Simulated scan of single mutants.
Amino acid sequence: MPFQFNFSIEENAENELETLGDTALQLGSAQGSLNADGSTEKSKEVSAERVVHQESLCAGEATPKTADPVANHSPDKSQFQVLPKEQACFKVAKEHSIPEDVSKVLENKVIEVVQGLYYVNISVVEMNLTDGSHEEDIVSKSISSHSDLITGIYEGGLKIWECTFDLIDYLSETEIQFINKTVLDLGCGAGLLGILALKGKAEKVHFQDYNSTVIDEITLPNVVANCGGGGGDDGGISEPPSKRQKKTDFIPALMSKCRFFSGEWTEFSQLMLSSNKSLSKYDLILTSETIYNPEYYSALHDTVSKLLNKNGRIYLASKVHYFGVGGGVHIFEKFIEERNVFRTRTVKVIDEGLARYIIEMAFKSSI
C-alpha cells in the first residue's frame, strides 16, 4: 500500500546509512516481482514490458507513440516521438545541495515500494509540477508535446525505464561488489541503481541526470527515503511512522556519501574535473537506456573516459534498437570500437520481444 511521508529523520538515521548493506537487498527477479501473473503484451515493434505500477509511474505522462496509456506496464523506451532541436538549450551542469532539513524533500510525496526499494509516486510529483512553477516546466512541455523526449529540454528522467530493472537483476545475480567503491549513476532518473550501490556499502555514490527537476523531485527524495530510515532490521521494508524525530547528524552522513548533479554530460564532466573538491574517479559507472540517441554518443564517451578509474568498469543496459531515434546496442558498440578506447563485452541478453542487453565496458589499457 502506498503511504505518505511527512516526517523528520529519526535518531538512528546516521547509523542506518552506515549499515545499509548489512542485510541483503531482496531483489529477486524483476520479472517475478513486477509481473506476478506472468502476462505480457506486445505490439509490432514494442518489447514485452514489465509491470511497475503503471498507475503510479506513468499516469498522466506523455507516452511513446505506441504505448497504451492505461496498460499496466512499465514504459518502453524502444520507440520515441522526439521533437526537433528548435529551442533546445543544452543545460549547464550544476551540483544540487542537500537541504539542511532533509525531511522536507519528502513532504507531499507518496512513497511506494518496488523490488525492496522506496520510490516516490511519479504521477503525484507530476501533478504538483503541472502548474509550471518549476523553472524547467518539463511536465507541461512533455504533455503539450506528446513526447517523452524533447532534445535539449527533457530527456525522459521522470520515468523508470525497463532496462533499469534488467541491470538491477544482473548486478544482484552476479553479486557485483560495491563495498568501498566510488560509483556514478549516470542519467540516473529515479536513482535506483545508485541506491542499490548505497545498499551495497559503496563508499561514495554520485547521481547525475540531465534535468534539475528530476534530481530535486525524484532522485533526492528516493535517496532520502531509502537511506533515511524505514528499513527493518531484517533488511525488509517496514512502513515508517507518520512522524520521526529530526536527526541533524544525518546531513553530514548523507553528504559524505552522496552528491547530486544535473546538466548535459560534457558540462558535467567539466564541472567535476574543475571542482575545488577532490575528485576520485569512479570505480563503477552504472547507466540505463542512455544510448537511444547517437547524437549523444560523443558526449557520453568523452564523459566516461574522463571520469572512470583506469581499472574501473561501466555497466550499461540498453535495448537492441530505439525506433524513431536510431540508437541502440550495435550502433553504440560500433562507435566504441571506432574510438578504440574501451573494450565491450555482452554479459547478458534478455531475449523477450525486442532484445535487451547488459554491456560491460572497460579501458583497453586496463589489466
Rank of each mutant, 00 (worst) to 15 (best):
T303K: 00
L27R: 04
F90H: 07
E112Q: 14
G228E: 01
H53R: 08
T164W: 00
K181W: 08
C58N: 14
D233L: 08
E173C: 04
Y119V: 13
G200Q: 02
S280L: 00
H146L: 10
V125N: 11
T303E: 00
S318V: 03
T213Y: 09
S78G: 14
V124C: 08
L25V: 15
K348G: 05
K201L: 13
S103H: 12
E10G: 05
K281A: 03
T182R: 13
V183L: 07
T130W: 01
P99T: 03
Q4M: 01
R50M: 11
E203R: 12
Y210I: 12
E289T: 06
L307S: 01
R259N: 12
G194Y: 08
K334A: 15
E295Q: 09
I336W: 14
K94G: 14
F250A: 11
N226I: 06
S262A: 07
L284P: 02
G353L: 03
K243A: 14
A71S: 14
K281C: 05
G231S: 04
N293Y: 13
L220I: 10
T151E: 04
G157P: 10
F165W: 14
D185W: 12
T66Q: 11
F342Y: 14
I98M: 08
A88Q: 09
G132Q: 04
L27Y: 08
